[in-house]
Each structure stands twice: as C-alpha cells, then as structure tokens.
Design a protein around this nucleic acid. Structure first.
Length: 907
RNA sequence: GGGCAUAUAUGUCAAUUGGUAGACAGCCUCCCUUACAAGGAGGAAGUUGGAGGUUCGAGUCCUUCUAUGCCCACCA
C-alpha cells in the first residue's frame, strides 16, 4: 500500500463520516453488551440562525472526545444533537428578509403567513449549522436529532406551563419590565446587557414649589420621563429638604402637581439630593411608587415613542426627540439649571443592542421559589452540580440562585411556543393543554389564545429530558430510563444562569432527578489579540476556514490541547504545529506500512517484547494510556494531549522507530519469510511495531477521528476482532476499537531506566559531535567506562548506539584509556564517555565545553549543598526528600570530579 | 459599588497535595541521513508583575500594592 509523502487533511477526512453514520456506529444500539454501562451527553442546542464559531468547535470537540473514549471503552454511548428555535433572533432575521424582498412587515402578512415563512426559512437555512457540525466529526446520533419546536418538545412545554400554572407558580401580572422598543418585546433580566456610554449627560431640571418662591432641582439622565413623574423624593434625613416634605411642586409642561415625598432610598450625595419619581418607567421608582401608593403614569408607546399621556406636544414623538424637546422647553421656561457630562451605564437589548426602556406591562411570570429551593438544597447537601473548573463557577451558580427573582416568560413575538392560555369575551383566562380543553373549561369556544409566545429558554430548560422522550404525558421512556441523568454538560460560562441552573431546576421538578452529573465549563476562545472575538471588531476566526486550511483533526486536537478551563488566545501557529503532528502520524504509519510485509496487527505481540527497546516502548505506551485515561476522567484535556503528543513524537518516532529501523527495514539480510503468523524475527518485529502504532491510533482517535480512522483502515490485519467486545459484530472501525487502559503488568520501570541510560549515552555523544563541530559523516570511536550493569546494557544495545550516535566502534570497559586529544563527557550515573578526536579536536573549544558543564553542575551543587547543610531541612523535610537531594548531590560530585580531571588533562 | 479570576522564557500557555521551573512556536548552529524539510541532531533563553510575611523549602499558602479581564448590582 502506498501512502502519499505528505498528509492531506481533505483526503484523510473523505468519506469516513458518512460511513460511520450509515453503519450506525453513532447509535447506542450498536453496543451489543446488555450489561454495558451508559454514557450520555446532550449537546447545547445551537441557535437555528447561528453559524459555527470557535466556541462551538471547542465545546463539541470536548464532548466528542469524552463520548468517543467512553464508546471505545464499551459504554453504551448516546450523544444527542439538536437545535434551538431562538425566538427573537430568528423572527428578526425573517422579518428583515421579508422587508428586503417584499417591503412588508410581519403585521402586513399576518401571524399565520409569517410563521409559515419562518418555518420555510428554517427548512432552507436551518441546516447550515448542522452541516457544519457534521464536518467537525462529532459522533452524535442523528436519528435522535431534536428541534425545540418539534411537536413532542412543544407538548412538553405546554404541559410544563400548565402544571406550573395549576400549582400556582405561574401567574400573569402587570409589573415593571425590560422592554426592547426595536424588537417590541419584553426581555428577561438575563437578556439585558450593560453598555457604558461615555458621552452621557445629566440634566438638572427645576420644578417650582407650590406656594413658595422656590424651585426644587432634580437631576436626570432621561428628561423625557419627567412627563410621567408622579412625585419628587428626598431623603428624610436630608436637612436641606426637610421643610419641603409633604409639599407639592408644579410639574412643568404638564400642568400637573406632584407631591414631595421622603424615602430612605434617595442618595443625598448624588445629583441634587432630590429625585424625580417616574414609577411607570424606572424599576426603583416603581418600587418606591408601590411603597407610597403613587400613580403609575405610562407615557410611552411600545415602539419607543411617547403616547398621548405625555401631552399633545409629545404624543407620538420618538423618545430621543421628546428628550430634546423637553430640554428645549425647560430652557425656554428658564427652568433648565445646567447640563453636566455624565458617564453612565445603559441597559441594552442583548440581541439588537437597542437601549431598552423599563415600563409597566402585563406579562406572564414564573415564581421560582420551589425550584430554586430544590436546587439550593442539592447544592448544600451534595455540592451538586460539580463544576469543572470548580472556581469561580460554583460560587457564581450559588449566588445567582440565592438571589433569584421571578422569571418573565412571555415574549411579544410570533415565533415560538404560543402561550397555552385562552381568554373569553369577559377577559377571564383559561390555561389548558389545547384549545379544546380550554373550551371545555370555559364552557364556550368563543376564546382567544394569548398572542404571546414563551421565552426560548422555557423550552431549552427541558432539554436534558425532553430530547429523551419526556413530553409531560409520557413521562417514562426507554431512553429516559437508560440515558437520564446525562453524564456531563459541556458549555460556556455565559449560560450558567440562562441554561445550566434552569436545567437543574426543571429536571428536579419534573423528572425528580438531576439533569447531568458534571458540568464542564470551557474557557473562551479569544482572538489573536487577546480580545474577545466579535463581529464588529472583525477579529473572529472561522472554524470552517481553519478546517479547510489545517484539517479538522488538527483543529480538534488544538482546541482540546488548549482546554484548561482558562480563556486562551487563538494562534494559527498552534494549529500549524498540530497539523505537523498529524503529518508525523501519517508518515510514521507510512514507514510502518512500507515495512509491513509479513506483519499484521496483533495486540498479543505486545505481551511478548524481545529487546530492552521493545519493553521500553511497550511500557511507555501503557503508561501513556493509563495517564491519558486518568487525565480525561478529570477533564484535564490539555494534559491528555501533551501525553499523546510526546509519546507519539518523542518516544515512538524519534526513538523507537530509529532503534528498530534496521531490524524491520527491507535490507540485504533476513528477508521476512512468508510464513503465516510471522514467526521469523523480522516479521515479529514488524508485527510488534505496527501493533504499537495501532494502539497509539486508538488512543489518538477521540481527538483526531478522521486521520486515525483513515490510517487504521490501511493497517494489515485490522478487523472487528480489535473492537471492544461490545461491538464484536460491527464493521471494522477504529472508533469501536477497544480503548487502551494501560496494563500495569506491561509497565516496566527497569526497562525504562535502562533505556534511559542508552538514550542518555546517545544524546551525550551527539552533543559532543555537535559542539565539537564534527561532520555527520565522520564515524566516531566511542569509549565508555561504566559499571558492570552499565556495560551490560550498552553491550546489549551496541548496534543501536552505533547507529544513532553515528559511531564506528564502541569500547566498553571499567576505565578509560584514551589519548589526550579526546572529547569527554560524564553521564548522570557517573559513567564516563570519551571520543578520541586526533586531528579534529579544538582544545580551546573542548575546554570551554567542559567548563560550561562544570559551572552548571556547580551552581546546582551549591544550591543543594546549602540545603543539606541546613540542620532544619535535614531534620524537618520528609526523609525521602532528603535522600533524593543526597543522591543528586553525589551524582553531581561524581560528575564534577570526572569533568575536572578531564579538564586538567587538557592542561 | 461588590465578587471572582489572571499576571511564569520573545509569543501562546503548562506545572498533581508547597520539594532543583516545562511544552509548542520563534531564535542560534549543523544536516536535503531512502517514513516525514510540515523533517533530523544539538543549543541559548526565566530574580515566576512589585513589596512584605509564614516555612527547612514558595510559581504554589497569607497580607498588601499595581495591571488586565470577567461576573453581579437600582445609583437618578
């Protein structure tokens, strides 16, 4: 089999995803073991309007790594995909499109026609993100794909609504709310963001005091709201205004008179110490209005213009127009005291960034008390959910729950789950699961359904169980029983409140169990400049472009390797280096395949090592496997990636392949005999290396699914025999191969330390060669003085040492007998190396080399010497630490002694 | 205004319960050695943001300062 010299990601990705999907590998049913443990994850449903960004790619990679590993370990694994209908975003997108194409508004075409258009849009474009997700290679079960507006999920939503209503947790009421004049809907507190406005103004307006030649000055950032003022408040402890409390002021421009009231809330230090009170348009004023029974005078329309209550001069004027006009009129009346610059923070709509208004409006609410208490109790008693990283997420979650307020769930939109509430002609409300049920309850079918829809999160908070078949009527399904609670939720920090905490509450309330065991919160992928990626800054990195340039596998392992829970800046160089890693894997496989005649993958060959090198690489393999598993169990993705990278590149490629190259290469000596079973030494060695490679591919597979599958399929002798027993009957694929756990019996510390000596010797000789500027073609004579065991080890590996150090001869003994013109080195063990360099040596260079080494060792020795001469250290530190320092100290002394002698010989 | 996080080699980031600071990229030297130049061999580079403290020992724990970032909050 011929492999190209270079790895080509596109070709390596070709076809595999389709094959996996078609052969059913993504479905849990592919697991034939009735006693298998389960592992399940539900994907955080991306918005149907969305397109893939790096945050998705990161989360999806993490989830897929976890899922693929567990699947290979033999768990019955379910990874559920789906998308969210994203009420506001989607409605806006279709509204814009409607205007662009037909110059019509939703109102022009009506609710039914509009929602039809949204569905049509969804069918056409909603698949964009799904196809992008496929490209990522994630092993989700597409046969269980869900959409939050699917009929069964909608049914779940209606049932939850009705249940909460009947239990008294859902109510309808007029309260102060956040209103987006652009989207023309109410927003929950979590959908409002802050935006700092540096050029804000603080206007000082004067209100004449009734029956006195006095003016009371109030400061405001929103002068237009004065049209809705129903009081002025001062602090009761404020001496300046004591006499005014209880008096009234003339509210300019309106002809109304409003009282001066006293309230502790007023900050005496800010502004003038007197505050205009607009209960209908400010949350604090609203509260104060309730305390003092003030009238709530609504002066605004829902589109951000003033209404007739604002007075004829202002009716239908845009709010900012009205602001200018109010200020102008105050100026004309001589009642405008001054305008100060005032940096301020404005609340804006999280979606469209329009400055929101607060106004009093009739909405549906959920009282969260019971569910919050359920969640908090679980947190207190069992520290659930367990967040990774623990800090600060745990505290953020708990603090938020403790201060939880009622949730506004109605939205003035057409796209979403219409609220299952109907009104009769007298305005009486009937909450029901269907129009028929409402009619029965009302005793009439002359009912009108509430036009509003529910907050998008009112469907996504059911996601962990609604996707498994729970719809409120059917509350027990095979999938629920098997896969709920899910194992881990992987998501970004910004939806801990919006989604994570609400999922906990919903699952506890409706299913009576946790929605997931662990929560892994990923860091944020920042742009190259360390800033947040954003469309306006145009500093975003498109995952699809990265896939195209470097391949999906390189991108995935880059993301996993960067995932420590901290935020991290995106660097193309990083992917590039993992692309190079992919190329390394490709070429290592290419090498093995070029020398694979007579060999076939056989895991049993790994329990049958021949040489120290074999024992060593098998030990390294098993240790790596063990540590990778440990790392992934604790969500230490970067650690797992580092382990695999170094095992594959350093241990396997740089050392093992080089060590056994001659043994397995086609050469003049022993041709592999074409006997079955590969019993001749060459075939055995080939079988061994290809089997080690095969194990490595399995370990890498969760991170680099395409490349590993592509190469695995090319190995001789792969079949479903290599699968985890749970998948014995499935078509051969590395994704069902048994994931190596690392066998303790094959971890051989002695082989590792012996091989360590060989590696050190080779490295020292190479070092001498490089520093003495000896040409690569120059064969060296190497003399080594070592103890008996050292001599034995070096003798056993003589061929490899000669080859890798490019030496002609290796002289082993217990002493050195070499000419003065030699370059020398001392190993950690004290073994000495000498390379005679008659005619090649530069004595000055050699002196410098030895002196540098002496200096380094001296510095370290001085440090340790100090430590050892410290009574306190020797007495108080753990004995093994003291012993370790002593050992190192004696190594240093031995080496120093030898190096100094060598230096003296040079004169 | 509160709360939290981060500051480590030129850059991006690691460092298990305190125990001689690591990786990748970049940089320097040499090498197109038939798996791979997207490579190989060797090398240089850090008072771990500043200042104190605890300890035999501090990147790691405590105090404080500085810088940056995130979250929460009603300051008109």
């Amino acid at each position: 089999m011929d492999l190209a010299k270079q790895y080509n990601p596109k070709e390596a990705e070709e076809g595999h995803y389709q094959r996996w999907e078609e052969s059913g590998c993504f479905k849990p049913e592919t697991n034939q073991n009735p006693d298998a443990g389960k592992y399940s994850i539900v994907i955080p449903p991306p918005n149907v309007t969305g397109s893939l960004h790096m945050g998705h790619a990161l989360q999806h990679t993490i989830m897929d790594v976890l899922t693929r590993r567990k699947r290979m370990l033999g768990f019955r694994t379910l990874f559920v995909p789906g998308i969210d209908h994203a009420g506001i975003s989607t409605q806006k997108m279709v509204t814009d499109k409607l205007w662009a194409e037909e110059q019509k508004t939703p109102l022009d075409i009506g609710r039914e026609a509009f929602t039809e258009k949204v569905w049509a849009w969804k069918e056409k474009y909603g698949g964009t993100i799904l196809s992008q997700i496929r490209r990522e290679g994630i092993s989700v079960d597409w046969s269980r794909e869900h959409f939050t507006m699917d009929e069964d999920l909608s049914k779940a939503v209606r049932n939850v609504f009705v249940t909460l209503y009947e239990e008294g947790w859902i109510y309808r009421g007029a309260r102060i709310v956040n209103w987006c004049p652009n989207d023309r809907t109410v927003l929950s507190d979590l959908e409002v963001e802050d935006e700092t406005k540096k050029d804000g103004k603080l206007y000082y307006l004067q209100y004449p005091v009734k029956g006195a030649d006095l003016k009371l000055t109030v400061a405001t950032t929103r002068p237009e709201t004065m049209l809705g003022d129903t009081a002025v408040a001062v602090n009761p402890n404020d001496e300046r205004f004591r006499d005014l409390i209880g008096k009234t002021v003339d509210l300019p421009l309106t002809g109304r008179e409003i009282p001066v009231i006293a309230d502790e809330y007023v900050d005496m230090e800010f502004g003038t110490g007197a505050v205009k009170i607009t209960p209908a348009h400010d949350p604090n004023d609203y509260e104060m209005g309730l305390r003092h029974q003030l009238e709530e005078l609504n002066v605004m329309n829902l589109d951000g213009t003033m209404n007739e209550a604002a007075g004829a001069d202002f009716d239908r004027l845009d709010r900012y127009e009205a602001r200018r006009k109010v200020v102008e009129k105050f100026r004309e009346l001589g009642l405008l005291e001054k305008i100060d610059d005032h940096e301020m923070v404005l609340p804006v709509c999280a979606r469209c960034k329009t400055v929101i208004e607060t106004l009093v409006s009739e909405q549906w609410w959920v009282k969260m008390d019971e569910m919050r208490d359920l969640a908090l109790k679980l947190k207190r008693e069992t520290d659930y959910p367990r967040f990774t990283p623990h800090n600060p997420n745990t505290k953020v979650y708990t603090d938020w729950l403790e201060n939880l307020r009622d949730w506004t769930i109605s939205r003035q939109l057409w796209w979403g789950h219409q609220i299952p509430a109907w009104y009769d002609e007298s305005g009486e409300v009937y909450v029901a699961r269907s129009a028929e049920e409402a009619a029965r309850k009302a005793g009439t079918d002359k009912l009108t359904q509430d036009p509003d829809v529910l907050d998008t999160w009112f469907s996504s908070w059911l996601w962990s169980f609604s996707t498994l078949g729970w719809d409120g009527e059917t509350t027990e399904t095979e999938d629920l029983r098997r896969y709920h609670p899910t194992d881990v939720l992987v998501t970004a920090r910004d939806i801990i409140f919006l989604w994570v905490s609400r999922m906990v509450m919903a699952a506890l309330k409706f299913v009576g169990e946790r929605p997931f065991d662990d929560v892994y919160i990923t860091g944020t992928v920042l742009a190259k400049d360390g800033q947040r990626m954003s469309k306006t800054k145009k500093n975003g990195v498109d995952p699809i472009e990265v896939f195209d340039k470097y391949g999906v596998d390189a991108t995935r392992i880059t993301l996993a390797g960067s995932s420590t829970g901290m935020d991290f800046a995106w660097r193309d160089e990083k992917v590039e280096s993992y692309r190079n890693f992919a190329n390394k894997i490709w070429n290592a496989t290419r090498f093995c395949l070029l020398n694979s005649e007579g060999a076939r993958v056989d895991p049993k060959s790994l329990s049958d090592p021949e040489s120290i090198a074999d024992k060593w690489i098998i030990s390294r393999l098993n240790k790596t496997a063990r540590d990778v598993n440990d790392a992934l169990e604790k969500y230490a993705f970067h650690e797992a990636v580092q382990l695999l990278y170094h095992f594959f590149w350093d241990d396997f490629c740089d050392w093992y392949i080089e060590l056994v190259k001659d043994e397995i290469s086609d050469g003049d000596q022993s041709e592999p005999q074409a006997v079955a079973g590969g019993s001749d030494p060459k075939s055995a060695a080939r079988t061994r290396i290809i089997s080690i490679l095969e194990q490595a591919l399995r370990l890498l597979h969760p991170f680099m699914p395409y490349l590993t599958e592509d190469l695995w399929q090319k190995l001789p002798g792969v079949s479903s025999d290599l699968h985890n027993p749970a998948y014995a009957s499935a078509p051969a694929t590395v994704m069902l191969a048994d994931f190596p756990k690392g066998e303790e019996a094959l971890i051989d510390e002695r082989a590792e330390s012996e091989m360590g000596l060989v590696i050190e010797l080779i490295t020292r000789i190479r070092n001498i060669r490089a520093e003495m500027r000896i040409k690569a073609s120059e064969k060296l004579d190497v003399h080594v003085s070592a103890d008996d065991s050292g001599q034995r080890i070096f003798a056993e590996n003589e061929a490899q040492i000669l080859k890798l150090a490019r030496a002609g001869r290796l002289h082993l003994g217990d002493g050195l007998n070499v000419p003065k013109a030699s370059a020398k080195g001392v190993m950690t063990s004290g073994a000495e190396i000498a390379v005679p360099l008659e005619g090649l040596i530069d004595f000055e260079m050699e002196r410098e080399r030895l002196s540098a080494q002496i200096n380094n060792l001296k510095t370290e020795g001085d440090k340790l010497g100090k430590q050892l001469s410290n009574e306190n250290f020797v007495q108080k530190a753990p004995p093994e630490k003291v012993e370790a320092v002593r050992e190192r100290m004696s190594e240093i002394e031995t080496q120093l002694k030898a190096l100094k002698e060598n230096l003296e010989v040079l004169g």
